[in-house]
């Protein structure tokens, strides 16, 4: 794969470059995998809360604990939650909706936007397990070393996001919700398996063999929606330019390699792009510990670097 040109051209990489090595000890491995383990716990935990409420009648405050699914839900009978992208499509489609779902969508929107929009993608979305598995398979068997079978621009997802809204407006129904493989996977895991899992299988094959990070990194309009909002997110990966040797290991594990632009990261002392899913892979493997999770308000811009690098423009 291509490494960003900034990788080689940036000054300050005079120190010897150490690369990441997976520790031999179990404790060391667990430490490296800590964010991945935490993400799986959250992903399956959310699924378990929904499934427990649906199938085993789990309750809180005398009401169903977490009824519904990721499209719309009700927590403890009082707190409505809803997928803001689905609601947006319905509104664009000209459907009037009752207040509950609008409140739920607003709450969800504010919560995820504050966290950093695509936190949903890496920590909650069930499809992430599928695409991470495909990524693992790719690396394990060296499929990733060869060229992608298809060339899909990473911004295709924003086009799909726009097309989803246009088709919603034209047809009068929520266009992406009608064929969303994400919603189908989650729904059918909870309510019974139909052909919805074929979508997940298709995405697995796409990601494993055709396009590296094909679905989450190139196509998913829901991810594009959250990425658009993620720019103002508060949980960010902070970047310490002084200790970074530009070894590029973070770029190799990152599902959105474009966000790791060292020039921009040095100037802003963090990974600012909305596409960052806060999966923590880079944080866990950085041999110099130059990357860490931090709240945006706690990230301090280096005074010297503030004007050293322009923040505009991509790295390709």
């Amino acid at each position: 794969m291509n490494l960003p040109s900034a990788l080689t051209s940036t000054p300050g990489a005079a120190r010897p470059v150490r690369h990441f090595e997976m520790p031999a000890s179990v404790g060391g491995r667990l430490r490296v995998l800590r964010f991945t383990i935490a993400r799986r716990l959250v992903q399956f935990g959310v699924l378990l809360l929904f499934a427990g409420t649906l199938h085993w009648g789990w309750q809180a405050l005398g009401a169903p604990l977490l009824a519904g699914n990721l499209s719309a839900a009700k927590f403890a009978g009082v707190l409505p939650l809803a997928d803001p992208f689905a609601v947006l499509q319905m509104l664009v489609a000209g459907q009037w909706l009752v207040a509950e779902v609008l409140i739920g969508a607003a709450l969800t929107l504010v919560a995820y936007t504050l966290l950093g929009g695509r936190v949903f993608c890496a920590w909650v979305c069930p499809m992430n397990v599928v695409t991470d598995a495909a990524f693992w398979l790719r690396n394990r068997f060296g499929i990733g070393a060869s060229e992608d079978l298809l060339r899909v621009p990473a911004r295709a997802r924003y086009v799909l996001l726009a097309v989803a809204l246009v088709v919603s407006a034209a047809s009068g129904v929520a266009a992406f919700e009608w064929l969303s493989p994400v919603a189908m996977l989650h729904r059918e895991l909870l309510y019974g398996v139909g052909l919805g899992l074929t979508g997940a299988l298709g995405i697995f094959l796409l990601d494993a063999f055709a396009v590296r990070h094909g679905w989450c990194g190139h196509l998913c309009p829901l991810g594009a929606f959250w990425a658009t909002l993620g720019r103002v997110g508060q949980v960010k990966v902070a970047f310490d330019d002084a200790s970074c040797t530009r070894c590029g290991d973070c770029v190799k594990v990152c599902p959105e390699p474009r966000v790791l632009h060292f020039g921009q990261a040095a100037a802003r002392a963090m990974i600012a792009a909305g596409e960052c899913t806060a999966c923590g892979r880079c944080v866990a493997i950085c041999p110099e510990r130059s990357l860490s999770f931090a709240l945006r308000v706690r990230v301090r811009r280096p005074p010297a670097a503030a004007h050293a690098e322009p923040t505009s423009g991509g790295n390709r």
């Binding site: 649906l54 009824a67 519904g68 699914n69 719309a72 809803a82 997928d83 459907q95 909706l97």
Partner: peptide
Amino acid sequence: DFAASCIKCGLCVQ
């Protein structure tokens, strides 16, 4: 309109 405004959450099913 039903198919268009249903968010497919399954709350009614539950």
